[in-house]
Design a binder for these strands. Structure first.
Lengths: 127, 127
DNA sequence: CTTCTGTTATAATAGTATTAGAACAGTTAG
DNA sequence: CTAACTGTTCTAATACTATTATAACAGAAG
């Protein structure tokens, strides 16, 4: 697996894992219908506990990015191309708002913010 | 003070406070050079502990949004209009990246993301 | 049927969040 | 000058989260 965990980060490792799995989906390394590794095998693979991987998976399930089939496994949900549900948009909005405000206070104007986001999107698709 | 804390939120109250102070600066309710209330008085005002307010202030100091003068008080830093320092840009980038990725996975295209951010910026300046 | 799956439960450890109380030393206003 | 106010530092208690460790359970899959 293409996961790199930084144990010394102040970001919990279950959150790092969840984040990198989302990134893998965004990059097309994981596509709709793909099965994720079992919590036990991925935990062994990454040298962490089964429950930590399980927590990351449930984080992704809560965001409806994967689906967990009890006693069976987890698979990547169909990603709605160029559509977004209102509740998802709401969550993204709540998550992103404080950062936008911080950016403004630190001196970024709307164009600069837009430019930053464009470069982030490019960096995802390229790397 | 124009602060509203939600004690039942899963966001720590020191983080809520820090966030709302940044927002107050973004809205111009607090401007460069303004003195923040003392940690004791704001804590009493909001019904929370002095140390919790202190933690929020140090969070803002870490982000270089305010300056804390030991044994004296905290004042709002000069906000660099339409300029942003590289290290600040770097931090904003790291903070915003996982959310952008989540937005993409949930079906937002670059235009939709840009539109969302524009509406957030508008909502800050209007309300 | 046996192995693999997520689920659930208990438990221990470490760290964070929040509150409390107190003392200390520099700042400031009367 | 002095008294009130300031952030700082310390100890300490409580609650919650994060992480790991075992173990047992019951459904899925070969």
């Amino acid at each position: 697996m293409f996961i790199q965990i930084e144990p010394e980060s102040d970001i919990p490792i279950y959150a790092q894992l969840a984040s990198q799995l989302i990134e893998a989906i965004a990059r097309g390394k994981l596509v709709s219908g793909d099965a994720l590794p079992s919590v036990r095998s991925l935990a062994a693979d990454l040298g962490m506990n089964m429950h930590t991987v399980n927590k990351a998976y449930h984080e992704l399930e809560r965001k409806e990015i994967i689906r967990i089939v009890p006693k069976s496994g987890a698979i990547v949900n169909p990603l709605s191309k160029d559509k977004i549900r209102v509740d998802h948009l709401e969550r993204i909005s709540i998550e992103i708002k404080p950062i936008i405000i911080e950016a403004i206070v630190l001196g970024m104007n709307p164009e600069a913010i837009n430019k930053l986001i464009s470069s982030i999107i490019l960096s995802i698709k390229e790397e």
